[in-house]
Simulated scan of single mutants.
Amino acid sequence: MLTDERHQLIRDRLAAEGRVLAGELASRFGVSEDTVRRDLREMAKAGQCRRVYGGAVAAALFAAAPVSLRGSHAIEEKMRLARAAVTLLSSGQSLFIDGGTTNAAIARAIPRDLELTIATNSLSVASALSEHALVELIVLGGRFDRNLGTCVGADTLAAVAQLGADLFFLGSCGLDASRGVTAFDSAEAEVKRAMARNSAGIVIAVTNDKLATAAPYRVAGPEAIRHLVVEKTAPAVTLADFERQGAEIRFA
């Protein structure tokens, strides 16, 4: 069986069941588990799945997983994105930073010589900024969702409504040039939309696996994105679609 044929069958299984096991695939294809693991590595690099112990899960399933699980994925890539994203900052700005592991990396990368006002509903972001002496930190309270790692609900929305920001670092579950920014959780999406409305510009730092994907709940159209921070290996065709709609592309 050719490599492309195996990859298509794996994609079909992921679409139908959400996960695959390397041992089962090796038996089905009549190849070694090393061959299957190589297939999964190549597919994961292309953003078609996420490697887990013993096999892989669908990329969308991984994106919807608890933040504690997602935190161990693509650590180096997120650090590079974070370093590129913070070059957009200057002293005196006010920011919204919502949840997500990439946004937590951005919070950790903010230079210590910048005076900023930052409002966040993410406990990870707040923790990363808690000892930043020049940051006026506003923690947006509300109902804490452990899977999301953020506060959501009416109290959070009320707090957001009282504030405005120069930039909103928006954690994206899915990012597509047609559908825009999307999220898996309706309450999370509602808070993101409120922050977007009260911000002068949106910044999204995103790993390749989230490009050209969509989650159920819409947050903002692609035309709302001012800055898109991506990996150097991000598909040029996809990036061109965002550029045509006004996004400035920055490579990490």
Rank of each mutant, 00 (worst) to 15 (best):
V206C: 02
T101A: 07
T150W: 01
V191E: 06
N147M: 00
F184S: 10
G100A: 08
I106L: 02
R143W: 06
G141R: 08
G141I: 04
D185C: 03
H132I: 03
F168D: 01
R108N: 08
I110K: 02
F168L: 00
D145I: 02
I118G: 02
F168I: 00
R197A: 13
E190G: 05
A107M: 05
T102F: 05
E190Q: 14
C151R: 09
I202S: 01
L167H: 12
N208L: 02
A128W: 09
D176R: 05
A183P: 01
G142S: 08
A107N: 09
G201R: 07
G149H: 09
L157R: 14
V191A: 13
A133V: 09
A165V: 01
S122W: 10
E188N: 13
D98Q: 04
T117I: 07
R146S: 13
I204V: 15
F168M: 00
S172T: 15
V203G: 02
N147Y: 11
T117D: 06
V135D: 06
L163Q: 09
V181P: 01
L170G: 05
I202D: 01
D209T: 06
V203N: 03
T150A: 15
A187M: 10
I138K: 13
A126L: 00
R146L: 03
E131N: 12
A119C: 09
A183V: 01
A107I: 03
L114N: 10
I118H: 04
E136F: 01
H132C: 03
G100F: 03
L134D: 12
G164D: 10
A154Q: 12
Q162F: 00
A205G: 13
L116Y: 05
A107K: 02
L211D: 10
E190T: 13
D209F: 13
A109C: 12
G141Q: 08
R179A: 15
V203R: 03
R193G: 10
G149L: 01
R112W: 04
G153T: 11
L163H: 12
A189K: 08
A104Q: 10
G174Q: 09
A158L: 06
T101D: 06
T207H: 04
G100P: 05
R112I: 07
L116Q: 04
S172P: 07
D209R: 13
R197W: 01
L170R: 05
V206D: 05
C173Q: 12
D209L: 01
G142L: 00
I97C: 06
V191R: 06
G164P: 00
G149F: 03
L211H: 08
R143A: 11
H132S: 12
V206L: 00
A128T: 06
A196V: 15
R146I: 08
A107L: 03
L140A: 11
R143D: 12
D155Y: 13
S172V: 15
R108E: 14
D166N: 15
T150D: 11
D176Y: 08
A128P: 07
D113H: 14
S178K: 13
S130F: 04
A212M: 11
V160F: 10
R179F: 11
G100K: 07
R193C: 06
R146Q: 12
D209A: 12
S199V: 02
R108S: 13
T182C: 04
F144I: 02
V191F: 04
A154P: 13
A214I: 03
V181E: 02
R108P: 00
T120F: 04
A158G: 11
D166K: 10
L148V: 07
V206E: 04
L134Q: 14
